[in-house]
Simulated assay, not measured.
Amino acid sequence: MGLATADVEVYSDHETVRLIGAPFTFNPGDRTIYTGVDNTSAVVLRAGWLGLKTEPFKGWQSAHILSVTGSNGDDRVFEVKRNFNNPVQEDDWLWFPAMPQKVEPCRN
């Protein structure tokens, strides 16, 4: 995903914040091969970085879900991962270690 604008809902421990037309970018994480002690292997996808060009807002560092509706109409949901990194501020950008999540409608 390149630089685009989106409406973003940020779900945090404090409150839900809605950003309208915020510039954003997403850089996917690396895939690495993990070999277990029993010599089996699996591909592991690491968290990427999602950047929002916006002022810091209350609760941005405790965000756990980012719901992104892009300017071209696509909807994406990202989970903020804090396994190895934490959200950071760099100049005008807020950066979140994030992984895209697959969302499906509930079927009964």
Rank of each mutant, 00 (worst) to 15 (best):
Gly2Gln: 13
Leu3Glu: 12
Ala4Gly: 13
Ala4Leu: 12
Ala4Ser: 12
Glu9Val: 05
Val10Gln: 02
Val10Lys: 02
Tyr11Glu: 08
Ser12Asn: 03
His14Lys: 02
Val17Gln: 05
Arg18Glu: 09
Arg18Ala: 07
Leu19Gly: 03
Gly21Asp: 12
Ala22Ile: 15
Pro23His: 13
Thr25His: 06
Thr25Tyr: 06
Phe26Ala: 07
Phe26Tyr: 13
Asn27Thr: 11
Pro28Thr: 04
Pro28Lys: 02
Pro28Phe: 03
Gly29Ile: 05
Asp30Pro: 00
Arg31Phe: 01
Thr32His: 00
Thr32Ala: 00
Gly36Asn: 06
Asn39Ile: 03
Asn39Arg: 06
Thr40Cys: 00
Thr40His: 02
Ala42Lys: 07
Ala42Glu: 10
Ala42Trp: 03
Val43Tyr: 02
Val44Asp: 00
Leu45Pro: 00
Arg46Leu: 00
Arg46Met: 01
Ala47Ser: 11
Trp49Pro: 00
Trp49Arg: 08
Leu50Glu: 06
Gly51Thr: 11
Gly51Trp: 01
Gly51Arg: 06
Leu52Pro: 04
Thr54Cys: 15
Thr54Val: 15
Glu55Lys: 07
Phe57Arg: 04
Phe57Trp: 10
Lys58Gln: 11
Trp60Ala: 08
Trp60Pro: 08
Gln61Met: 14
Gln61Ile: 13
Gln61Cys: 10
Gln61Pro: 04
Ser62Leu: 10
Ser62Glu: 12
His64Val: 04
His64Leu: 10
His64Arg: 11
Ile65Gln: 04
Ile65Pro: 01
Ser67Pro: 01
Ser67Gly: 04
Val68Phe: 07
Thr69Trp: 07
Gly70Pro: 01
Gly70Glu: 12
Ser71Arg: 11
Ser71Cys: 10
Asn72Ser: 11
Asp74Met: 13
Asp74Tyr: 11
Arg76Tyr: 12
Arg76Pro: 02
Val77Asn: 06
Phe78Asp: 13
Glu79Gln: 14
Lys81Ile: 14
Asn83Arg: 09
Asn83Lys: 06
Pro87Arg: 05
Asp91Glu: 15
Trp93Met: 14
Leu94Tyr: 03
Leu94Glu: 04
Leu94Asp: 03
Trp95Gln: 07
Gln101Gly: 10
Lys102Met: 15
Val103Asn: 11
Glu104Cys: 14
Glu104Thr: 15
Glu104Arg: 14
Asn108Tyr: 12
Asn108Ser: 08
Asn108Met: 09
